[in-house]
């Protein structure tokens, strides 16, 4: 475990806590894409199947449980919670996320480390996570008013994989030059998708104006 990875995990955890805070404190999920949350739940379930079979460390197992339960809780809130579900922008959150699931699955069948159930699920979760933010970014462009917490949620979510890229560079040079093409390429794509969001977020912060993504 190196500092970059720990920073990445904490940033990721923080993004989830910010979203939970927003939903719990404001009892509203306006501006939040339920489709992206559903995709993240699939990502975590598909990736953390080894939770019960391979014990890496207490930290690793605890974080897996936290990510799976928090993403499930957020989806549950947005679907079932009587107050929260009413604030969901159903007609704005229209991205056909099934396409993302299908494409990631096909890609995982072709590009994986081993053609085994676990490795195909793992590769699927890596590819799906790279594009899972798309429904959320589309929703942000549509909904004019991006509230601060939702903006911060997306910011931390984008930053976490950037820290992971630094972690991969660090590990490449310190742990023998093993190449991990799948997470590297997917991680770069994932972080690149946030590039314009980071840019407009920075502008809104610099000019001290509300964050607005151009349509």
């Amino acid at each position: 475990m190196n500092a970059f990875r720990f920073l990445g995990d904490m940033t990721h955890l923080f993004s989830v806590l910010v979203l939970l805070l927003k939903i719990y404190a404001t009892k509203s999920c306006s501006g939040v894409s339920r489709k992206t949350q559903e995709l993240y739940m699939v990502v975590f379930v598909a990736r953390y199947m080894d939770l019960f079979t391979d014990y890496i460390s207490l930290y690793n197992s605890v974080m897996k449980v936290v990510f799976i339960t928090s993403s499930a809780a957020i989806v549950w809130c947005m679907r079932r919670h009587p107050q929260v579900r009413r604030t969901y922008d159903r007609d704005q959150d229209t991205f056909r996320h099934v396409v993302l699931v299908a494409a990631s699955f096909v890609l995982a069948l072709i590009f994986n480390e081993r053609f085994t159930f676990r490795e195909i699920c793992w590769a699927f979760s890596i590819y799906l996570e790279a594009v899972a933010i798309l429904p959320q970014l589309v929703l942000l462009q549509r909904s004019r008013n991006v509230d601060n917490l939702t903006g911060q949620y997306v910011l931390f979510l984008g930053a976490y994989r950037a820290f992971y890229i630094l972690n991969w560079i660090y590990r490449y040079f310190t742990e023998g030059h093993t190449s991990r093409w799948i997470p590297w390429i997917a991680g770069l794509v994932q972080t690149a998708l946030y590039a314009d969001f980071f840019y407009y977020y920075f502008l809104s912060w610099k000019n001290n104006v509300k964050l607005e993504l151009p349509a």
Binding site: D9, H12, D50, D54, I56, M63, E119, Y164, P183
Partner: peptide
């Protein structure tokens, strides 16, 4: 065969 590198990251 080489040990399948466990995915030790989140």
């Amino acid at each position: 065969i080489d040990k399948v590198r466990a995915h030790d990251e989140l």
